[in-house]
């Protein structure tokens, strides 16, 4: 496990707001030299704490009006290969994230679609036909707030 100091935490906080900040610009904000900032970013990246970047896009402007969270229960536990299910579900372009969970469901999916009829198409043709799928529970996303977390 990585031990962070206050400067590392400030770097993570700043980059989780804007990942395009250069080491120079970030260093100036924090009163740190460009090389020192760059070394810290490199260490955070190599440790895996900085796990890449995400584009923030206007989904509606790009034609994706609906985001739905699905809770999936496998029908035939033990007989279906989890790997087969995971491979097939990950290959669906509209499925943005797949999490293996423990609790009321086996998997949690985040799915985008153009509109509700398009979502119904994805659900019927792609999700319901996955190997081993039993029950599917859908919740349409209304609003979302990403928090900075305990930094």
């Amino acid at each position: 496990m990585l031990t962070l100091d206050d400067t590392d935490r400030a770097i993570l906080r700043a980059l989780s707001q804007d990942a395009t900040l250069s080491a120079g610009a970030l260093g100036r904000q924090l009163g740190l030299s460009q090389p020192a900032t760059w070394r810290r970013i490199k260490a955070l990246t190599e440790s895996g704490a900085l796990a890449g970047r995400r584009l923030i896009l206007d989904h509606a402007a790009l034609g994706f009006g609906v985001t739905v969270f699905l809770g999936i229960t496998l029908a035939t536990k033990g007989r279906v290969s989890l790997e087969d299910f995971e491979r097939a579900v990950s290959a669906i372009p509209e499925v943005q994230t797949v999490q293996h969970v423990l609790g009321h469901y086996d998997y949690r999916l985040r799915v985008v679609a153009r509109d509700l009829p398009d979502f119904e198409r994805v659900l019927r043709r792609r999700i319901m036909t996955l190997p081993g799928v039993g029950n599917v529970d859908a919740n349409v996303l209304l609003s979302e707030d990403r928090r900075p977390g305990p930094l």
Binding site: M1, A19, T20, L50, G52, L57, A61, G149
Partner: peptide, 19 residues
Amino acid sequence: QRGILKGQQAVIDWRKLGW
């Protein structure tokens, strides 16, 4: 400018930080 690309955010792997 049109607000379609709003920016880029770093993804933090909390597990790597001991969470």
